Computed example of a mutant assay.
Amino acid sequence: MRMVRQKTQIRKIESLAARQVTFSKRRKGLFKKAQELSTLCDVDIALVVFSATGKLFHYCPSSMSEVLERHGRLQSQNVGEVQQLSHEMEIVRRRAVMLSQELEEKSCELRQMKGEDIQGLDLKELSKLEDIIASGLAAVVKTKGERMLNEISTLKKKEAQLLEEKAYLKQQLARMDTCVGQRGIQDQCSQHCSLELTISDMSSEDPAHNYNVSSLYTCLKLGLPSSD
């Protein structure tokens, strides 16, 4: 059966002797890990440790002063960026507060224009509100009149267009009626001519038959039909 290793609780070691022994072991392990990281990854490392008694231990594969100076420059740059960001955030906050106040004022004016929340206004404020409403009403009436005139003009154009289309359709209908009448006359003339030719053929084919051709010819007439 495999034994499960218990985790060591990370807390301050009360015994001074045990604490010094643990510090010595862990410090050496920490410096070893720092050396491996610097060698494997080719990075600059500056490790500074002060013991409980105030003794200094440090590790740096390169120049400690150069690494610390570089850290100081970056720290100053970061501080400047943080300050700039804080300044910009303060500007945004003030702008948001100003917009919020402006929104509240405009909302109050809108309610007052609707006749709400006007009990606390004095005569001067009421007169100013009346002038604003009157000016807005005049603008609304003017815009409404312009829109109505535009609608009337559009309707008149549509009416003229419909009248033109109506006249065109009437003209086309009259032409169609004329064509139909002329075609009917031509059909009647064709029927009369066909009947006359048929009778003429009958009389010429067999003279022995006693056709009363004279009586047939008296009933056939070429030309337009009479009004009777």
Rank of each mutant, 00 (worst) to 15 (best):
R5G: 09
Q6R: 09
K7M: 07
T8H: 11
T8K: 15
Q9W: 08
I13H: 00
L16E: 06
T22P: 00
T22H: 11
F31G: 00
K32E: 08
A34P: 00
L37W: 06
L37Q: 06
S38W: 01
C41G: 03
D42M: 04
A46N: 04
F50E: 03
T53Q: 07
G54V: 02
L56D: 02
F57A: 04
C60M: 02
S63I: 03
S65Y: 03
E66A: 12
V67K: 11
L68R: 03
H71Y: 07
H71Q: 05
G72L: 01
R73Y: 01
Q75E: 00
Q75L: 01
Q77L: 00
V79N: 11
V79A: 12
G80F: 10
Q84V: 09
V92N: 07
V97Y: 04
L99M: 14
L103S: 14
L103H: 11
E105F: 06
S107C: 06
L110P: 00
R111C: 08
G115Y: 01
E116C: 05
E116T: 01
D117H: 10
D117Q: 10
D117G: 03
I118Q: 01
Q119W: 05
Q119V: 09
D122H: 05
L123T: 14
K124A: 14
A138Q: 10
V141S: 04
G145N: 13
G145E: 12
G145S: 13
E146Q: 15
L149Q: 10
E151Y: 05
T154E: 05
K157I: 11
E159T: 15
L162P: 00
L162H: 04
E165P: 02
A174N: 07
R175W: 01
G184K: 14
Q186A: 10
D187N: 06
Q188P: 00
C193G: 02
S194R: 12
L197R: 09
T198W: 12
I199P: 00
S200W: 06
D201F: 06
D201E: 08
M202D: 00
P207F: 03
N210T: 05
Y211G: 03
S215W: 08
L216N: 03
T218W: 07
C219W: 04
L220Q: 03
D228R: 12
D228V: 11
